[in-house]
Write a protein that binds this DNA or RNA. Structure first.
Length: 274
DNA sequence: AAACAGGCCTAAA
DNA sequence: TTTAGGCCTGTT
């Protein structure tokens, strides 16, 4: 039994980091709010509590695995967003509406695996499957009297069979998970190398994985490998692009941070559809 | 009850 | 290179 000292730190101002938008914009699946809007979850092997108060965002955890980097706070999103203004009035609306979203720098394997699970699923079900995956095969973490579970490393899942994943009720995605986990574990798929590679090469390599197509590969690139120019297009994005952008619009025109623009557009499109 | 969900795979033009 | 059908599971 080791004693830990809980620490609280201020992460950012609420204008710079909006935790509701950031956690609810569909990029992550393991942060959950309670009745009073306090979020709890685990990332980078640590459990934490995150909340907003007095114009600031605070985080409490037993140790700091690098929360600032996780929230990408070294990056000036307002400055970057200037690249997205003047494209169209609609784009301006998206930027204004999404201000405060941060692209979380999630762990590569967690991002890849989570978005494999996400295919043809809605968010509640994705969250359920991911949670069962972590509870079944992750490591327990005790924090503030509750037990949390880390995201299971690829090496752990590589030793399992599809049958072992039956309790997850993730359907045909089980084979994809096992296959990807084995590729990562045996070194065939080197995610760290991909985060250093260029976005395009990384995308191509990811797509070689069984069960990983263009959409999932782009999500892994953007949310797990730090490739901010990655531009995932799902049904929501397709609709938004069709309705609000010229038919020949090339996302590359948004520049090296196109992925952030994508998230603004996506978040706005989803909010409209509800 | 049948269709559809934040895709992808395979087979067939 | 594009297109159709099937796929697990869950919800409407």
């Amino acid at each position: 039994m080791t004693l830990t000292t809980e620490k609280t730190m201020r992460l950012a101002g609420t204008d710079e980091l909006d935790i509701v938008k950031t956690f609810e914009c569909g990029q992550c699946f393991r942060w959950n709010a309670d009745e009073s809007g306090v979020y709890r979850g685990t990332a980078l092997g640590a459990a934490a509590r995150v909340w907003s108060a007095d114009g600031g965002v605070y985080i409490a955890s037993d140790f700091d695995p690098g929360w600032r980097d996780y929230f990408d706070l070294g990056c000036d999103y307002d400055g970057i967003s200037l690249n997205f203004t003047g494209i169209s009035p609609y784009m301006d609306e998206c930027v204004a509406f999404g201000r405060g979203i941060r692209i979380l720098r999630q762990e590569p394997w967690e991002a890849l695996c989570s978005f494999i699970i996400s295919q043809c699923n809605n968010i509640p079900r994705i969250k359920g499957i991911v949670e069962r995956l972590c509870q079944g095969f992750g490591e327990p973490l005790s924090f503030e009297g509750d037990t949390y579970y880390t995201f299971p490393p690829a090496e752990t899942l590589a030793g399992l069979s599809e049958k072992d994943l039956a309790p997850l009720r993730c359907g045909y995605r089980a084979a994809y998970i096992i296959s990807a986990a084995r590729a990562v574990a045996d070194g065939t798929l080197d995610l760290d190398a991909l985060s250093c590679a260029c976005c395009e090469d990384s995308l191509k390599t990811l797509k070689n994985c069984y069960g990983v197509g263009t959409k999932v590969a782009n999500c892994a690139n953007l949310f797990g490998l730090g490739h901010m120019e990655a531009f995932p297009i799902d049904v929501w994005m397709k609709r938004a692009l069709n309705e609000h952008f010229p038919p020949d619009f090339d996302p590359a025109a948004l520049g090296p941070y196109a992925g952030l623009a994508q998230q603004y557009i996506f978040y706005y499109a989803r909010s409209e559809g509800k």
